[in-house]
């Protein structure tokens, strides 16, 4: 065990410590998250997968400081996350670009809110647009871009904040399959360039394996983190890696873990509906 393994929070690792989340509705208490613990080490790409409605997005909101957990906490550098942090920017599933702003001003939004002077924030936004491959689109408006390009604008808007951790809530969920694959590959390239810590929520197993160093598998409600799968595939994850038997092996392992959960979650929903 190395030194920073013993004191992970000191290194900019994000620690999810026994987070529990319950709701009170119609006088009944619903346990959304029974117990979730884990560590996103600095510079690692971590995905959370699980059946729909399992509380993946709730967990992400808690890490972002958007929602307070009922008990437990999220820490970074020994500090507890209790409110939204600008260095934990989020990329959403829906199109969250502001249609009345140019691409450049969309990317600069967070810096503007943080009070960074105009010249500096524009220069930084321009640099990041190069990173996400949107150089030349600075003065376009979001409506003139495809859905995939808009999500890259949202990713750029998050990256420009020089995040301690990037939070992504099914960011490609609203895209069609082909676009989704291409933007996923693009994210892979961007991440390998920036090496930011990422917490990525998805329900797509192949997407999780393609991108991640680690995949957290969540159970159905009341949710816990069932298992953590370390994806030891070489990087860069080029076509050869993504077509390897090893890759398919990881997909198979995750599918086996999640299959039972998805099936019983579905049965539960059907029962609740009837």
């Amino acid at each position: 065990m190395t030194a920073w393994d013993r004191d992970p929070a000191a290194r900019g690792d994000v620690v999810v410590d026994e987070v529990r989340m319950t709701y009170v509705s119609e006088g009944r208490t619903t346990v959304a998250i029974e117990n979730a613990s884990g560590t996103v080490r600095k510079g690692r790409f971590v995905s959370i997968i699980g059946p729909s409605g399992c509380g993946k997005s709730t967990l992400l909101d808690i890490v972002a400081g958007l929602t307070r957990p009922t008990s437990g906490q999220v820490r970074i550098g020994g500090e507890s996350v209790t409110s939204p942090r600008r260095d934990f920017p989020m990329v959403f599933q829906d199109d969250s670009t502001l249609h009345w702003r140019t691409v450049l001003d969309n990317v600069a939004l967070g810096l503007e809110i943080a009070g960074v002077p105009k010249a500096e924030r524009r220069a930084r936004a321009r640099d990041i647009l190069g990173v996400v491959g949107l150089r030349g689109f600075e003065h376009h408006r979001p409506r003139q871009l495809s859905g995939g390009m808009r999500q890259r604008v949202a990713i750029a808007r998050a990256l420009v904040m020089e995040p301690a951790m990037l939070l992504m809530d099914e960011p490609f969920g609203a895209l069609d399959q082909q676009t989704r694959t291409l933007v996923g590959i693009e994210l892979l390239r961007i991440w390998e360039e920036t090496r930011t810590s990422v917490l990525f929520v998805t329900h797509d197993i192949r997407e999780a394996v393609t991108l991640s160093d680690e995949v957290w598998v969540m159970s159905r409600r009341p949710s816990t983190i069932l298992d953590v799968v370390h994806v030891d595939l070489p990087r860069p994850r080029d076509t050869d890696v993504l077509r390897s038997a090893q890759f398919e092996g990881y997909v198979g392992v995750l599918w086996d873990l999640i299959q039972a959960e998805v099936a019983s979650a579905m049965r539960e929903q059907e029962r609740a509906a009837s």
């Binding site: 972002a64 958007l66 409110s83 939204p84 942090r85 600008r86 934990f88 920017p89 989020m90 959403f92 829906d94 199109d95 969250s96 502001l98 009345w100 939004l109 967070g110 503007e112 809110i113 943080a114």
Partner: peptide, 24 residues
């Protein structure tokens, strides 16, 4: 999503209203 964006960027109420919610 626009509301959530405003919160995640730790906007003040005025910033959220002026930069995101009003134009939206």
């Amino acid at each position: 999503t626009h509301r959530k964006l405003a919160r995640s960027l730790a906007c003040t109420r005025w910033q959220a209203f002026r930069s995101i919610l009003l134009p939206s």
